[in-house]
């Protein structure tokens, strides 16, 4: 097994009481890893990025200790030229080996008014154990649109860190969808800088966490441009004695006039014994903005249960059905039919 060290990641921008144990996450993680050998399908219109320094200013959400962990990793880079709209996604598929430590880093530069989708699907051999750390840093040009989809369906012995960062220029749009099934420990980070006016950020995450596994998420979106928009929605299902922390921060800088940010979370708890922690933060240094947060944690609504029970569905089955439906709702937002079909089937067979 790999040599491990203690690292701290997913630290909140503005921390709160320490006794809540939500400010950051401290984990034992592999000291070093090997470059992965994913299957990459690169569609026409996507070039190899020759100079990764283009994303040197882009920060990830997991924090400096993850940056340091991946500092010496060779960057796999893509670029899309100005005005090029790529229909087919870049597909990156991992089949992680038992006992492996995989460290990979991606840089994506998307020119003005270009469009691209990136779908990363991380799987492992059945019953495999191991570590994997990924970081994807994206530069979104003016008027460009980027969809980043990250899917985790590793075996229950795997510890995954998956981190993204994006700098979005004027009228650019960055969309991230993270879906995590199983995995022993999942640490997801995201940091988006809406630098240009009218830049947009859209984040969706869906997760199913069970047994004694851990799901730890940290999203930070900074609004510097005028009239920027952020929409974050997380939907999850927690079972058994699992442990989940969701941190999200919407930050409005002075001058980000008429910007809007909304963060929402909906968590379904399937058992007593789960630990569900949420800290949705709004930081506001500008008067003329609108920031909103809403969250619902717990069980299904009584009227929904009443309705379904009156249709002859037992209570336990209702919960199972709604758990799958939650994940499916997030899956269906992936802008790729092939991936949606595959994941819906995977979800149904869990």
């Amino acid at each position: 097994m790999a040599e491990v060290k203690t690292i701290t990641l997913n630290r909140m921008k503005m921390i709160t009481w320490r006794w809540l144990k939500m400010n950051e996450r401290t984990v034992e993680f592999a000291v070093e890893g090997s470059e992965g050998a994913p299957e990459i399908l690169r569609p026409v219109g996507v070039d190899t990025l020759t100079d990764a320094s283009a994303v040197a200013d882009v920060k990830g959400g997991a924090g400096p200790e993850v940056d340091a962990l991946l500092a010496d990793v060779a960057v796999k880079g893509f670029s899309v030229a100005e005005g090029v709209e790529v229909e087919e996604p870049i597909r990156i598929k991992y089949e992680l080996a038992d006992g492996a430590s995989t460290f990979d880093k991606y840089a994506v530069v998307v020119g003005d008014n270009a469009k691209v989708k990136i779908i990363m699907d991380v799987q492992s051999a059945e019953d495999a154990t191991g570590y994997a750390a990924f970081q994807t840093l994206v530069k979104v040009g003016k008027g460009a649109e980027v969809d980043l989809v990250q899917i985790h369906r590793c075996a229950t012995g795997y510890h995954i860190i998956d981190d993204f960062g994006a700098d979005v220029d004027e009228t650019g749009e960055f969309k991230a969808i993270q879906i995590a099934f199983t995995g022993k420990e999942n640490d997801l980070g995201g940091h988006v800088e809406l630098n240009g006016d009218k830049a947009k950020c859209f984040i969706r995450s869906g997760y199913l966490t069970a047994d004694d596994h851990v799901m730890d998420i940290n999203y930070y979106v900074n609004h510097s441009g005028k009239e920027c928009e952020t929409d974050i929605y997380t939907s999850g299902v927690l079972r058994d004695t699992c442990y989940k922390v969701f941190r999200t921060t919407i930050d409005f800088q002075p001058g980000a006039v008429k910007s809007q940010g909304e963060e929402n979370e909906n968590v379904l708890l399937m058992n007593n014994g789960v630990t569900n922690k949420t800290v949705p933060t709004i930081l506001c240094g500008e008067e003329d903005v609108s920031g909103e947060h809403g969250c619902t944690v717990g069980r299904l609504a009584d009227d929904l249960i009443f309705y379904l029970e009156s249709r002859g569905i037992p209570n336990e089955e209702i919960y199972e059905m709604m758990a799958k439906a939650r994940l499916e709702a997030t899956i269906r937002q992936i802008p790729d039919e092939k991936t949606v079909e595959e994941l819906v089937e995977f979800n149904n067979n869990l």
Binding site: M14, L269, N271, G273, N276, K277, V279, P280, T281, V297
Partner: peptide, 10 residues
Amino acid sequence: TIPAIDVRNQ
């Protein structure tokens, strides 16, 4: 605004 929620009950 920094709200924290910790729920351990289904």
